[in-house]
């Protein structure tokens, strides 16, 4: 029971990261490998806001997420749009965006190492026990999960119940057809990319309340998020949430039953399974 609850609590933060990435890749068509650095940057900013200005990390999301939104909008418009314009095929754009975001990954990582050093960081926020079904869990994890659920619900309403949200989903399905129904595709892509960055930053702010972070851990999170995105089906928000909870569960199960050092192996086992059985994702439709 405790494995299931811990796993779900962890899966909540993963879900936000993966939903952010699935928006960036599924709508803006950019495979953003610097997404993990975006997350770590948000961890550091939340930590900094909390320790110097005593701003509650949950409220800190209201500062960190819009800042990340603006930063990602700028990255998309200045660094990535030229690549979208010059790409002749989807494959060429993929290679270019992978290499460009590798560049961003290392630049961000380098700047963070220079600013904060290579050490491990954590801070004390709501580190008190909280009982669920007679067993104790850290309150900060529970609060972070609750906040993640709130953000996810808000996003769901936005994507499925508003005009702009529908436009975003239309671009995800087909950028060419979306243009025909008077959707401004470049603007929508930039918005989706920025929104994805904002969501990831929100996840980072939540993660920092209970997770020990350091400047170079971003790649691992990018990889987990990518695996979740593939599992859920590219561009599919509901699939990403379900896959994230699954990953959270397997990781917790493996680390508490077998060895805490095997979490990446657990991710890969799931990934292999998906690739062999359902490469189009849990909810994905087969192209062939």
């Amino acid at each position: 029971m405790s494995i299931i609850i811990t796993g779900l609590l962890l899966g909540g933060a993963y879900a936000l990261i993966a939903v952010g990435l699935t928006l960036q890749y599924g709508v803006a068509r950019i495979m953003n490998l610097a997404n993990g650095e975006n997350l770590v940057l948000a961890c550091f900013c939340t930590f900094w806001l909390f320790s110097t200005l005593a701003i509650n990390p949950i409220l800190g999301i209201l500062i960190v997420a819009p800042a990340a939104f603006a930063l990602n909008w700028a990255i998309y418009s200045y660094a990535l749009r030229p690549l979208v314009k010059r790409a002749r095929t989807r494959g060429a754009l993929e290679v270019d965006s992978i290499l460009a975001t590798f560049g961003l990954l290392f630049v961000f990582q380098g700047v963070m190492i220079l600013t904060f050093g290579g050490g491990y960081y954590s801070y004390n926020f709501l580190r008190v026990p909280f009982a669920i079904f007679g067993e104790n869990y850290a309150l900060n994890r529970v609060v972070a999960f609750g906040a993640a659920v709130a953000v996810a619900i808000a996003l769901y309403v936005f994507l499925y119940r508003t005009r702009y949200g529908t436009a975003i989903r239309a671009v995800a399905v087909s950028p060419e057809s979306a243009q025909l129904v008077a959707i401004n595709v470049p603007r929508t892509s930039a918005f989706a990319f920025a929104l994805g960055g904002g969501l990831t930053a929100a996840a980072g702010a939540l993660l920092s309340t209970f997770y020990t972070f350091d400047a170079s851990m971003g790649v691992i999170f990018t990889m987990k998020a990518l695996i979740i995105v593939i599992m859920g089906g590219v561009g599919d928000v509901r699939g990403a949430v379900l896959a994230a909870l699954l990953i959270g569960l397997t990781e917790t199960a493996v680390s508490s039953l077998i060895d805490p050092g095997l979490t990446v192996a657990a991710n890969y086992a799931l990934f292999m399974l998906v690739l062999l059985v359902r490469p189009q994702g849990i909810f994905g439709r087969s192209n062939a």
Binding site: V95, I230, D259, L262, V264, A265, F271, M272, L276, P279
Partner: peptide, 28 residues
Amino acid sequence: IATLRLSGVYFVIFTLGLAELVKQVVTW
């Protein structure tokens, strides 16, 4: 065999964490 039947992105993602995976298994 696991990834190259599919599109290139799967391959990149798989290789991204491959060294980390083998490292974890060897250490364990």
